Simulated assay, not measured.
Amino acid sequence: MLQPKYKRVVLKLSGEALAGGSGYGIDAAVINSIAFQIKEIVEFNTQVAVVVGGGNIWRGVSGSSQGMDRATADYMGMLATVLNALALQDALEKAGVNTRVQTSIEMRQVAEPYIRRRAIRHLEKGRVVIFAAGTGNPYFSTDTTAALRAAEIEAEVILMAKNQVDGVYDADPKVDPNASKFETLSFLDVLNRGLGVMDSTAISLCMDNNIPIIVFNINEEGNIKRVIIGEEIGTTVKGGSV
């Protein structure tokens, strides 16, 4: 029987990944596919925490660029991530996966408040934990949330699920047909080249805590499982020179 390479992971899902081809809202077929892929790795006894974005509903940066107060716009973005987290929880539980949503902004009627030790206990019991509402602070992205939560729960790796690309390229592959994909990168490479893996705060957190990042395409069925069992897909960002 195949053995998982990783025992505890953080899966980072962008809001756009949940929207499918429409670019807005939540696509039921897409979220059910993601739930099935998560179920596959839970059955491998891998502990899974998920951080969801909210860009399919609202982006704080976009709101602030239109004149809205930045903090207000960011709080709205945090609430959008809660909508996505509840939708993913519903899909996972319909697939038979025990799931808990924890939010950085308290809303006890719909989710637990984020408590580190409780989150770890849920993971140890085989439950998927979805972290919503970002860090609870404006000016911080959900990428930074993923890096922070990964460090806090001592995850072995962050799985960066992308819905349009299968890794990190030296140029935009949708614009430049000659763009080359990196197999591996160092954290310093990402920072120095300004590559759009995560924002610089998130990358620095990962570098300081030696948490590797694997960037891959979520739209190809079975890719999460391939990463978990150690297949080399996408792009791996890690410490040291590569």
Score class of each variant (00 low, 15 high):
Gly21Ile: 07
Ile57Lys: 02
Val48Asn: 04
Gln47Asp: 13
Leu79Arg: 00
Ser14Leu: 04
Ile115Val: 15
Ile224Asn: 05
Ala146Lys: 06
Ile38Gln: 00
Ala28Lys: 14
Leu13Ser: 07
Leu83Ser: 04
Asp172Leu: 07
Tyr139Arg: 02
Ala28His: 12
Thr201Pro: 02
His122Val: 09
Ala87Tyr: 09
Ala147Arg: 03
Ile158Glu: 11
Leu205Ala: 11
Asn210Ser: 15
Lys125Ile: 06
Phe187Thr: 06
Pro212Arg: 05
Asn56Ser: 01
Ser104Ala: 15
Leu83Gly: 03
Ser65Thr: 11
Ala71Tyr: 00
Glu93Asp: 12
Phe182Glu: 02
Asp199Gln: 03
Arg226Pro: 04
Ser33Glu: 15
Cys206Thr: 11
Gly126Ile: 05
Gly230Val: 13
Asn56Leu: 03
Gln3Met: 13
Gly134Tyr: 03
Asn163Ser: 14
Leu148Gly: 03
Glu112Thr: 06
Gly196Tyr: 01
Ile218Phe: 01
Glu16Lys: 01
Gln47Arg: 12
Arg117Ala: 14
Leu195Tyr: 12
Ile214Thr: 07
Gly67Ile: 13
Gly194Gln: 09
Val110Pro: 07
Gly25Thr: 08
Asn45Gln: 14
Asp90Met: 10
Lys5Thr: 13
Ser64Arg: 12
Gly96Asn: 08
Lys225Glu: 06
Asn192Gly: 14
Ser141Thr: 15
Asp170His: 09
Val168Asn: 01
Ala85Ile: 05
Gly53Trp: 00
Ala28Ile: 13
Asn223Val: 03
Leu205Asp: 09
Gly21Gln: 13
Gln66Ala: 15
Pro138Phe: 05
Val227Gln: 07
Ser200Gly: 06
Glu154Gln: 15
Asp199Cys: 00
Val128Asp: 07
